[in-house]
Simulated scan of single mutants.
Amino acid sequence: MALFTSADGATADVSVRPAVPGDEDAVTRVQTAAWRVAPALGDAVVDLVDDDAVRARWADAVVAPPGRGFAVLVALDGPTLVGFAAVAPGQLLTLEVDPAHRQHGHGSRLLAAAVDRLRADGAQEIVTWVVEGDVARERFLTQSGLGPDGPERALAVGMDEDGVRSVVERRWSAGL
């Protein structure tokens, strides 16, 4: 745990640790809250998500990762889980912070822990994907030393009145 003191003497108990069984409920809550404010998704798409299935996937990721180099990390504000990151060999699969807890350093701590984990597993580079139009995530990643490196992909995210709705993601990376 890290204990930080502000200029006015207030302290905040914040930390990042590996996820443990039981964290899947809070991880699912954070992910759903983050998706609701994501520029490309919104309530209509998120309402289609099966929370039980998402929760089960996170539980599996914590207790039975698919292989070496896969991990889920969580950010805590005191006893409250407020964010998470998932990594795979050389990749930041996802990093989300509860919208009510953004701008408090949790994302930076999660990214630093993810980079430490990737380096410990021998990665030379970090790669992640960013949804087109997610200006806040682009700003965060740019300030953290990552940048777009060219590839992009389209992903189906749901149905609307015109059929399948998709988003474009761009790959970002940085050397470690």
Rank of each mutant, 00 (worst) to 15 (best):
A2E: 13
A2T: 09
A10P: 00
T11D: 13
V14S: 09
V16K: 03
V16H: 05
P18H: 05
A26D: 10
T28Y: 07
T32N: 01
A34I: 00
W35V: 14
A38M: 05
D43Q: 15
A44E: 08
V46H: 02
V49G: 03
V49H: 02
R57V: 08
A59C: 09
D60I: 01
V62H: 00
P65W: 05
F70H: 12
F70G: 06
A71W: 03
L73Y: 01
L76K: 01
G78Q: 04
G78M: 02
A85I: 00
A86S: 11
G90K: 07
G90D: 10
T94C: 03
V97C: 12
V97A: 12
P99T: 06
H104S: 15
H104W: 15
S108C: 05
L111W: 03
A114E: 00
R117S: 12
R117G: 10
G122P: 03
A123P: 10
I126L: 14
I126T: 11
V127A: 04
V127K: 03
V130M: 03
A136Y: 05
R137T: 15
F140R: 03
S144T: 04
S144L: 10
L146H: 03
G150Y: 07
G150E: 11
P151V: 11
E152L: 10
E152Y: 11
R153M: 10
A156V: 14
G158F: 14
G163Q: 02
V164E: 14
R171A: 14
A174W: 07
